[in-house]
């Protein structure tokens, strides 16, 4: 019996140390990423909250203010104007991206020869930088050297060049066109992946039943794409709400600060006026708004999917 028990115990004890070793090994493997996240993400996040309670100049001593920054925000006209402008921009830019992305996805959802080339081409603007593409569009839209005015003039569609980026509404329109060009491929690919996940048998069955193309689209594809729509919508709305590069480069926030977005206003406070505490308070508010936005969107779209 003694030999038998020692035979049983020995591997068990060895097993325990092995699993302990594996536990330590696993922890060590994730440790660098965890420490990095703590130092560069969690700590700055907590610090944003802490700074938001202070008057925090770039140089010199920070002084504790309590919630004064948040009170100041209520009376900050530009803060409200920026939030409203960002909301307007998000509401205006989302539908064209979605409609065009859906149409493009329908177009390239086929096995025709060469379709891969077209998918790639429509996607290419996604991989270039937003800052760089904004500069590109500043030039395309320029009233003197820009090709867009050049073509419109040559076609006699306009009599004199349009100065796109100096008027708030024209600038909004021009920026939306540039952003649709830059980002529509991304939503297209998401929708295409959703479309390709729908089994062909469903369409074939409907076709046998005499359903038209339009009926198959609205009764089979669109309902089944709901979760894909939800994902693409959340990503697109959050991306639009964080808009900065295109306005910083294309309008510089003008005319008269009319195109200052929420992130732009944070940037101005933190890095132009060096009111770092106030910038931090604005960041916290933006975080809350985005959190609420994505929860609402996911709720709404998820509820509908459950029928």
């Amino acid at each position: 019996m003694a030999t038998a028990s020692s035979v049983i115990v020995k591997p068990a004890r060895r097993g325990a140390t092995l699993s302990q070793q594996r536990m330590i090994a696993g922890f060590l493997f994730v440790l660098p990423a965890v420490l990095f996240t703590l130092a560069m993400f969690i700590f700055p996040l907590i610090m944003t909250g802490w700074m938001s309670l202070h008057n925090w100049p770039l140089l010199g001593q920070a002084t504790f203010l309590g919630l004064q920054n948040y009170v100041d925000m209520m009376n900050d006209r530009q803060f409200w104007a920026s939030l409203w402008f960002t909301t307007q921009y998000t509401l205006l830019v989302t539908p064209p991206i979605f409609i065009l992305a859906f149409v493009l996805a329908l177009l390239v959802n086929t096995a025709l020869r060469g379709v891969g080339v077209f998918r790639t081409i429509y996607f290419i603007p996604v991989v270039i930088g937003l800052g760089t593409s904004s500069l590109l569009w500043v030039w395309l839209l320029n009233d003197r050297v820009g090709i867009i005015n050049g073509i419109l003039l040559d076609l006699n569609l306009i009599q004199r060049p349009i100065i796109w980026l100096v008027d708030k509404n024209l600038a909004m329109f021009a920026i939306i066109v540039s952003i649709v060009w830059k980002t529509v491929g991304f939503s297209m690919i998401l929708l295409l992946a959703g479309m390709q996940a729908i089994p062909d048998e469903l369409y074939q069955a409907a076709e046998v039943d005499g359903a038209s193309y339009w009926q198959r689209l609205t009764h089979i594809m669109m309902p089944l794409l709901r979760s894909t729509f939800a994902l693409a919508l959340v990503l697109s709305v959050i991306g639009s709400y964080l808009a900065f590069d295109q306005f910083y480069i294309m309008t510089r926030g003008g005319p008269q600060n009319q195109t200052i977005t929420a992130v732009y206003w944070i940037f101005n406070n933190s890095f132009t006026y060096y009111k770092l505490g106030y910038g931090a308070a604005l960041s916290i508010v933006l975080l809350v708004i985005l959190g609420v936005l994505s929860i609402i969107q996911l709720r709404v779209l998820r509820d509908e999917t459950t029928y």
């Binding site: 699993s19 594996r22 536990m23 330590i24 090994a25 696993g26 922890f27 493997f29 994730v30 990423a33 965890v34 996240t37 703590l38 560069m40 993400f41 969690i42 700590f43 700055p44 996040l45 610090m47 944003t48 700074m51 959050i238 964080l242 900065f244 992130v263 944070i266 933190s270 890095f271 770092l276 910038g279 931090a280 960041s283 916290i284 933006l286 975080l287 985005l290 959190g291 994505s294």
Partner: peptide, 29 residues
């Protein structure tokens, strides 16, 4: 591997996906 607090650590590392980097740029600077 299995180790204590694995899921908490995983969620912590992934949390940054949900929090826009624009909001932590001031302290990062």
């Amino acid at each position: 591997f299995h180790f204590p607090a694995k899921n908490v650590l995983f969620i912590m590392v992934l949390a940054a996906l949900m929090i826009p980097f624009q909001s932590i740029l001031t302290p990062l600077f």
